[in-house]
Design a protein around this nucleic acid. Sequence first.
DNA 1: TTTAATATGTCAGCCATATTGACATAGTAC
DNA 2: GTACTATGTCAATATGGCTGACATATTAAA
Lengths: 172, 172
Amino acid sequence: MADILNITSYAVSYQASPLFLRDVELRHGIELMYFGYRDLTSGPDAVLVQHGLGRAHHRALYFIARKPDLIVSDLLKLLSITKQSLARVLNDLQAQGMVVSTIGTGDRRQRHLSLTEAGAALELKTFEALKATMQRAYSACGAQAVSGFWQVLMALVDPAGRGDIEALVMGK
Amino acid sequence: MADILNITSYAVSYQASPLFLRDVELRHGIELMYFGYRDLTSGPDAVLVQHGLGRAHHRALYFIARKPDLIVSDLLKLLSITKQSLARVLNDLQAQGMVVSTIGTGDRRQRHLSLTEAGAALELKTFEALKATMQRAYSACGAQAVSGFWQVLMALVDPAGRGDIEALVMGK
DNA sequence: TTTAATATGTCAGCCATATTGACATAGTAC
DNA sequence: GTACTATGTCAATATGGCTGACATATTAAA
C-alpha cells in the first residue's frame, strides 16, 4: 500500500512530463482560452453597440459596478491601460450620464467613480448577457469543474499582480 | 450513507440556485477570464513586438502552425474576422517570409497556407512563451483542475460553432 | 514654508486592428 | 455559357490603444 502511494505520488509530482503537461494538452488550453474568451465577450458587445459604446466602455462600467467609489488610479491598474486611453472612455460615459466622479474626502486629489441609475441599468444589461453564457457553462459542467476552472485561471495570472486580483475576485 | 449521497446529489443537481451559480460565483468566472486571458497573451505579445508584428499576426501564425495547409476560408472562420482584415496580416507575414501560400491541387481557387522555416521558428518562440505560462498553471493545479478548466471553457463556446472547435482542439 | 511628489486631466499625433462597400480575377459547377 | 465560389485589393471609417508634453490642484517632505 505504501509502495503504491509512493509510486502514485512519484508519477503525479515528479515525472518529467505527465500526460496533462504535454504540448498537445497545453495547446488545448490555449485554444479553449481563445475561443471561450471570444464567445464570452460577444454577448456584452452586442448590448453596448446599441448605445454607441464599445468593449472598453464595458470594462470600465464593469469594474465601477464591481467596486463602487473606485478611484481612477485603481481602475487604471485593473484595466492595464494609460490614463489617456481611460480618459476617452470615462469622458464618453460621463457625457452619457452613466458615470459620475466625486472628490475624495481624505485625499482631495482623488476622484471616486460610481454609476448613475442609467449606468447601473446598462451594466446590468451587459451582466445579464455574460451571466447567461457563464451560467449555462457552469450548469453543464458542475461545481467540481468550475472549481478547476477558477484554479487554473488564477494560476495563469501573473504572480506579481495576483495578490490584487485575488483581493478583487475573492472579495477581500 | 445512502441518505447522505442522495442529499448531496439533490443539492448538486436539482437545487434552484446552487451556491456555484450565484452572481458572486459568476462574477468570479468573468473576472478570472479577463485577467487570465490578459496575462496569458502578454507573453507572445512581447515576442512579436520585436519583429514589428502584433497579436493579429500571432493568431494567424498559430493556426497555420496548428493546421498546416489550412485554406484561407477556414482560417477566416477560426479568426472570425473579414478577409480584408486577414489580408493585411497575411501580406505582412508573406512579405517577411514567414508564410507561403500554395494553389490547391483539387480546387485551384483555394490557397493553402503554411509556415516557412522562419515562420515556424517564430511560432515556436511565441508558443514557448504561452507554454511557460500554461505549464506553470497546469502543474500548480493538477490534472483534475485542468479537466474542469477545459470543460467549462468548451461550454462557454457558442453551441452553434462548438462542433468545429471540438474538431480542431480535440484533433479530429 | 518652500519644494517635491502625487493624482488627475487634456491636447496632439500616431499605430494596430477591425469594419463596410465596391470591384476584379480566376476557377468550378450546372 | 452562365452562375457561383475563393481569393485579392482599394478606399474610407471606427475603435482602442500608445507616447510625449504640459497644466492644475493637492499632499507630503525638507
